[in-house]
Amino acid sequence: MDLSSINLFVLIASLMVSATPILLAGIGELVVEKSGVLNLGVEGMMITGAVCGFAIAVQTGSAGLGFIAAALGGAALSLIFGFLTQVLMSNQVATGLALTLFGLGLSALLGQGFIGVKGIDVGPVPLGPLADIPGLGIVLFRHDGMVYVSLLIVAGVWAGLRYTRAGLILRAVGESHNAAHALGYPVIRIRLAAIAFGGACAGLGGAYLSIVRVPQWTEGMTAGAGWIALALVVFASWRPWRVLAGAYLFGGLTVLQLNLQAAGVKVPVEVLSMAPYLLTIVVLVLISSGKGASGAPASLGTRFHDSG
């Protein structure tokens, strides 16, 4: 065992990179669920974002355009879900699961021409002297732009939900769509907007995998990250900063165990792979036993029709 080979600062920096996909997808899903909609199609939206992002990034040579395409792709897919569940009032759980399957298939089809194609180089954001601060520079100031964007999105969602009128309306729709409707708010339109935002974030998360973290396109490359993002929202009991903490915790567990193994420490690999789900179940138990405050929106997953 040789723990000296692990550099703590590098470890934290890798953890942030590793957690960014589920952070983005998780914060998007949080907004969707706060509006009272349960979209289980995160995995499908992520992988669609991954393929759209990779394709556009490779063709234009610009990571930024790739991420925009990924957000659009994820949002477009999520609006299929939105149309089915909000307008045609299909069951949200079944439709969400179908969206995942559809997304996996669609991405495999779209990605046919991009298998084996080399990705583009995404360098760190030049932050000048900040990057040279010992320790802190490695942890905070040498990342690619998307890591910072993801943090900004978390802060934006938190501030938006808490301090803005739009956030208040979104929460009202999620708590009681009938009351919100009675007050004259367009419930369905608000929910569609939330769903599209969630899809865009999931798309960004997927594209972070294919453009930065891996970087290549491979079928099925999200490999269950969407499900972890869903667990993450529950784990965070629907609070934005807890999504951030949870994402870094879940991402951190993976990176930590890989690093410990590389350093020759014996770790229970299977247990750590289960950990995100186990922790989520623990949180669920705490919530239902009334010991932890539940942030679950009251109308989550229920159907709304304006006939009341």
Binding site: I6, S14, R213, M221, T222, L258, Q261, V269
Partner: peptide, 26 residues
């Protein structure tokens, strides 16, 4: 330095494992 990833196919995890190994000097 052997790292067990408990999967046959998970590009992100495999990439993380490679990164961890390289960071530790491989």
């Amino acid at each position: 330095n052997v790292v067990w990833v408990s999967t046959w196919f998970d590009p992100a995890k495999e990439a993380d494992a490679a990164t961890a190994l390289i960071e530790q000097g491989a």
